[in-house]
Design a protein around this nucleic acid. Structure first.
Lengths: 135, 135
DNA sequence: CCTCTATGTTGACATCCTTCGATGCAGCGC
DNA sequence: GCGCTGCATCGAAGGATGTCAACATAGAGG
C-alpha cells in the first residue's frame, strides 16, 4: 500500500533537483506530462486542504478518521482524493490496526518548489526594449 | 489586456510571502480555492510547456507566433491555454502591432515555490513512534 | 476602403473529474 | 464465528475541461 506512487518529476539525482527547468528550459513533452500529473493533483481545493492538514500535523502523521470529519464530503470522496495525492507521490500511507495513517512525502514538494524557483538573481529583462519584435 | 489576472495567492505583503503555509498550517477553504486555481492552471502538459517556453525565453518575451507551431494543436486551443495561464496570474501579455507578446510573472511562481517550501530544517518526524494513534 | 495576416472568441462535442450510495475487505472485541 | 468499525473500491450521474471549426477583431499595407 505504501509503494505505488508515481515517482514522477524525473530522476532523483541532484542535477535534476537543483535546476531542472520549467523556468529555464523549454521542458519536453514527456516531462510536461509527468509534471502535470502532480500539479493536477494539487489543482483541487479539497486535496490542497488535505495535503496541508497532513503536512502541518505535529507528529507528521494523520489518521483518516481525523481528516474526514473536516469536510462536508462523503468518506469515499475523501478516500478518492487521498488516493490521487498518493498516486502523485505527494503523500504516503500505512495501515496500523484498524486505522490508516497518512504522511507527507517532502521530497516531492521540495522538488516542485525547486522546479518553480528561478535561478537566483535572473535580472527581470527590461521590457521597455522589445526583444523578439523582429520577425 | 494586461491587467486582468486573478491575483490569487492571497495578499502581496511579505508575511504571506515568507511562510504562508500549506505545509505548516491547515489552509482554510477560501485560500485552498484560490491556490487550487493556480495549480489547476499548471495541471496540463500543454500549459506547462507553454509556461516553460515563455519563462525560459532569453529576451523574457515570446510572440504567440513562436509558440503555436511548437504544438500539434490548433491556434484557438493555444490561445485558450494562454488565457488560462494569464487568468491564473502566471503570465501576462501585450499587443505590439500585429503580434502579441507573452512574458512570465515571476512573482506568482516565486510565491508558489515559497508555499511549497517547508520551514527549513524541519526534522522529518520519526515514523517508528506512532504519533496520533490515540483516538 | 479592402485585403491579408495574426490572435482572440464562440459554440459544440467528447472526455475527464468530482461526488455519491452501495458494497467489499481488514482488524478488533465478544 | 459474529458483528462492529474504519477505510477502500465500484458504478453511475452531473458538471468541468480540452479541442476543434467557424467566426470576430485588430493592425499593416496598399
Amino acid at each position: 500500500m505504501s509503494n505505488q506512487e508515481l515517482v514522477v518529476l524525473g530522476r532523483t539525482d541532484e542535477s535534476a533537483t537543483c535546476c531542472p527547468g520549467l523556468l529555464t528550459a523549454p521542458l519536453d513533452g514527456d516531462q510536461a506530462v509527468e509534471l502535470a500529473k502532480v500539479f493536477k493533483a494539487l489543482g483541487d481545493p479539497v486535496r490542497l486542504r488535505l495535503l496541508s492538514m497532513i503536512a502541518s500535523r505535529a507528529g507528521g502523521e494523520v489518521c483518516v478518521c481525523d481528516l474526514t470529519p473536516a469536510f462536508d464530503l462523503s468518506q469515499p470522496t475523501i478516500s478518492h482524493h487521498l488516493k490521487l495525492l498518493r498516486q502523485a507521490g505527494l503523500i504516503d500511507c500505512e495501515r496500523r490496526g484498524t486505522w490508516v495513517y497518512y504522511w507527507l512525502v517532502p521530497e516531492t514538494t521540495d522538488r516542485l518548489a525547486s522546479i518553480l524557483t528561478r535561478p537566483t538573481g535572473e535580472p527581470l529583462p527590461d521590457r521597455t526594449a522589445p526583444a523578439g519584435a523582429a520577425s
